[in-house]
């Protein structure tokens, strides 16, 4: 590459080789995850609400509806399970959904305060920066999920074997990737925080309720066939099922395919949306261009 020839030895730039190295890629990734972790530690409120939200569902909602909503024996469960046990995977996915949208909410915020600009002037390619941002988001969501699982353990909501805590990890990484990438796409499309707040309502609630998080799909089919179609095509349903089976050391192949497929599509869309030549930023006049 011509860029590696000794450049004009201007006093500011002594003969330097500024190729991007693999080590540099790793340092950039590490830096982005490190910052996200630091911010997470500083925002105790965020951690607390991320933990309390699913616990409220688990302790109160599930206890109240235990009697109303009977769950028959469906895979992966081999015995009758308590309603709490049934909804735990859905609540885990909810943690990740909130986290994915929240970290992109922070991107919208970052963009408004300009921190996003600092990220984007890095010489590393956009896809690497976005992927690093996603890895950082997944890292934070894993902390939240395992904190939730710990509390749930003492509430007697446990997988059938302790191995479940390990086998669920790859599923969590994949679902975190899908939901995080979805958030990234949304953050590129919505410019203002107000918009985003309403998107939270229009996205989180429909996605969560029209899924198998709170009730098995066969129950929905009994109630309404169109709704059942919606639920079975909802990627969130497949995130929930992937987690549910993984907790029991099993793989739900359809869900795996759907989640992996959606993750890929969202990821490509996010890279496109933030691409400087093709992306939405150029077309829309950029984050802080004239209104």
């Amino acid at each position: 590459m011509s860029a590696t020839e000794p450049l004009s030895p201007s006093p500011a730039a002594p003969p330097d080789d500024r190729r991007l190295t693999f080590g540099g890629y790793m340092i950039a990734l590490y830096g982005i995850v490190w910052r996200e972790g630091l911010r997470f530690v500083h925002q105790r409120g965020r951690f607390l609400s991320a933990l309390v939200r699913p616990l409220v569902w688990l302790f109160i909602f599930a206890a109240g509806f235990r009697a109303v909503l009977g769950v028959s024996i469906i895979p992966p469960y081999e015995t009758y399970v308590l309603y709490e046990v049934y909804i735990a995977p859905g609540l885990i996915a909810m943690i990740q959904l909130f986290n994915g949208l929240q970290s992109s909410l922070s991107m919208v915020y970052d963009r408004e305060v300009g921190a996003m600009r600092i990220l984007l002037v890095s010489p590393y390619p956009r896809w690497h920066l976005l992927l690093s941002k996603l890895v950082a988001g997944i890292f934070v969501s894993l902390l939240q999920v395992y904190a939730f699982l710990l509390v749930a353990y003492f509430w007697d909501v446990q997988p059938d074997s302790p191995w479940g805590y390990l086998t669920v990890l790859p599923a969590l990484i994949l679902t975190g990737l899908m939901l995080g990438a979805m958030g990234l796409v949304m953050s590129s499309v919505f410019k203002q925080l107000e918009n985003f707040a309403s998107v939270m309502n229009f996205v989180i609630f429909p996605m969560f309720f029209a899924s198998s998080a709170l009730y098995p799909l066969w129950r929905i089919q009994q109630a309404s066939v169109p709704l059942w179609y919606i639920c079975s095509y909802n990627p969130f349903t497949h995130a929930v099922e992937l987690i549910r089976f993984a907790l029991y050391g099993q793989v739900e192949w359809t869900s795996l395919a759907v989640v992996a497929g959606c993750a890929t599509v969202f990821l490509v869309a996010a890279v496109f949306a933030y691409d400087p030549s093709a992306g939405l930023t150029a077309r829309r006049g950029g984050p802080d261009a004239a209104k």
Partner: peptide
């Protein structure tokens, strides 16, 4: 980043440049 220290802000930026 207002929540981070001065040095942490610098380290973050340096990492983005592979330092």
């Amino acid at each position: 980043d207002l929540e981070l220290t001065v040095l942490q802000n610098l380290l973050y930026h340096a990492a983005l440049h592979g330092l």
